[in-house]
Design a protein around this nucleic acid. Structure first.
Lengths: 342, 342
DNA sequence: AACTTTCGTGAAATCGATTTCACATTTTTC
DNA sequence: GAAAAATGTGAAATCGATTTCACGAAAGTT
């Protein structure tokens, strides 16, 4: 009757019939089970392509409990630092025919929990998360179901989870150290929004810690927060420079923010780095687009994605050796920072 | 025996037992089937949360033939123009509890076909593609299985597919028109790599077409191609400016390329736009980071993602009215272009 | 008060694969 | 050349939900 929707989908039994064998054998061929006769194997393969057979992943997953699906929950794809990581993560996974479901939480741990639930329902075999701040329920759910997960952009692993990233406190300290070594005394920071964002918070904490250790009064260090947008950086800069004694060096929680800060300087006729040094974070491609080029701390986003992919693909036994990985951070000195002018 | 891996996963029958009803009823409750008594409904819900029950998506999908999964195949996530679109697409889909599997083809139609096959196997209910150049096998596979698909970044729909995007030829013409109107006569282009990329090719074609129509000799219009990287733009620019009579205006196939071109000018002491006008394409966030700010053609990436999401979520009947959508392009004039110096 | 409808529920079939187990054959071993 | 082991294949059970169908009870109709 339905001539249009004819031969819509051949199933495994149809392949079996056409090849003149049992479904079991077809299944074996499809799964590269070695103990199938050569002749049969070829007949099956031919029958399958003839029919344009595509296995039903749901059925397969149901019976075999292997979905070949992993999940990733990131704050947003609209920020290169995450998009780049996900890109290399996906690339690595696809080499092994594993697909990735991506969802975005917009830096909200409650939303993350919801997304995680959905991913579990979809049967993902492993999950990549960003940072180390999560709802206990989220982790409990994954642990109860034995779904391995990995934190990224941080090196703080939990008891059962893994972390592939870097030490954000150290990163903050590194930034502080560098500006101090340039002789700066009035140092400020435009951090990212620290609510629900342990990485932004840790960077700020490490930064402050190092400054305080060097004798600066904690209350003398202006810190403002800004969204990861150029406009946010500009606004943050404006707030900082409105002070009576404006800072001579500023650490920005991201290159995007730094770019906004530099833009503010242009507008106000401030010279970077003569009047004020600007230090970024991430080393995105845009760090070479500001004028002057941005000095920044490089985050190994690409590498992180690849290594996280390896972790997710690994067997439980292999994972044991991969539970924590601290990648090195590198300070990329360009032209937006300079020793303090006397 | 296994005390650790205890109570790993409650199934629907377990919920039924605990709630003292049949599996069928539990299923009904879970699917918001209205004809379930209030008392039972509550008991079921309670039993489900007590047990930490999470439905098995594979089983559900197998029986109901609804996976609530869609796929997207894009060239790369490592380019903001795609990441932004995917971000808004994902956001839209997640509002309806639909998950997205993302795969990247690196501008390669063969790889795309492979990825599409995998997506079909996973049971995606719809697919978003980029551009209108695809293997016939890819489309045939989707059509045979009645999987709706939508092209993005183009407005050329096929007979059965849909397209949500813009007219790339028109975009090229628009760019040409603008530079011509500024009085430029020696005009060049740094296009993206046009192999397997209909959008890059169409933009170039429209651009050339308009210039030729205005009397320029086609062979007098230098066109080079470059990857979507700053470095590529810089190299392309170098090639163009090495000519005896270097161009006075250059249309770049992307803001990234344009940024590289401007960088080259800085290095060589060329003034933009006095010595040479640079016109970009995309209007990424970086267009405001170049010095001078970049004049560019705005691509509505965010909107495209949202509308594509609507299309993928729509019912077959609704889709009929959404099969083609040409979004307007807008020229954003900033400071990198100027009338030709006499 | 008898007769339909509607409503809420459960039993059993089903979706499309994989996997276990059993059973011929064939090959190896002594 | 008989016994033991390996090999290739199929029948049937199974994964965990949804869906169809049937059925008793409650409500509505005349």
């Amino acid at each position: 009757m339905n001539t249009e929707t004819d031969r819509l989908d051949a199933k495994l039994v149809d392949v079996a019939k056409r090849a003149g064998c049992s479904p079991a054998t077809v299944s074996r061929v499809l799964n590269n089970n070695p103990k199938v006769g050569l002749g049969v194997r070829e007949r099956v393969l031919k029958a399958a392509t003839d029919l344009g057979y595509v296995p039903n992943g749901s059925a397969r997953a149901l019976r075999s409990t292997r979905t070949r699906l992993v999940g990733a929950i990131i704050p947003t794809l609209d920020h290169a630092i995450y998009a780049t990581m996900v890109n290399s993560l996906q690339t690595r996974l696809s080499e092994r025919d594993v697909s990735i479901i991506i969802s975005t939480s917009f830096y909200d741990v409650d939303m993350e929990l919801e997304q995680a639930r959905l991913l579990v329902e979809r049967g993902v075999e492993a999950i990549a998360l960003v940072g180390s701040t999560h709802r206990p329920e989220t982790l409990a759910m994954l642990e109860q179901r034995n779904i391995p997960y990995v934190y990224t952009y941080t090196s703080d692993a939990t008891a059962v989870g893994a972390a592939i990233g870097f030490d954000n406190v150290k990163a903050g300290r590194m930034a502080a150290r560098y500006l101090l070594d340039l002789g700066h005394k009035r140092i400020a920071m435009i951090a990212g929004i620290t609510r629900d964002n342990d990485r932004a918070a840790s960077r700020r904490n490490g930064f402050l810690e190092e400054l305080v250790k060097s004798g600066l009064g904690k209350t003398d260090i202006p810190v403002v927060e800004s969204a990861y947008k150029i406009e946010g950086g500009r606004a943050g800069m404006q707030a900082l420079m409105a002070a009576e004694q404006p800072p001579s060096a500023i650490f920005c929680g991201s290159d995007i923010i730094a770019a906004g800060a530099i833009k503010y300087c242009h507008d106000k006729g401030l010279s970077v780095p003569r009047d004020v040094s600007i230090l970024g974070f991430d080393n995105l491609e845009i760090a070479e687009l500001t004028t002057p080029d941005l000095t920044t701390v490089e985050v190994p986003a690409r590498e992180m994605g690849t290594i996280a992919g390896d972790y997710l693909l690994a067997t439980p036994a292999q994972r044991e050796h991969m539970r924590q990985r601290e990648l090195p951070l590198r300070l990329v000195v360009r032209a937006s920072t300079a020793p303090i002018a006397r």
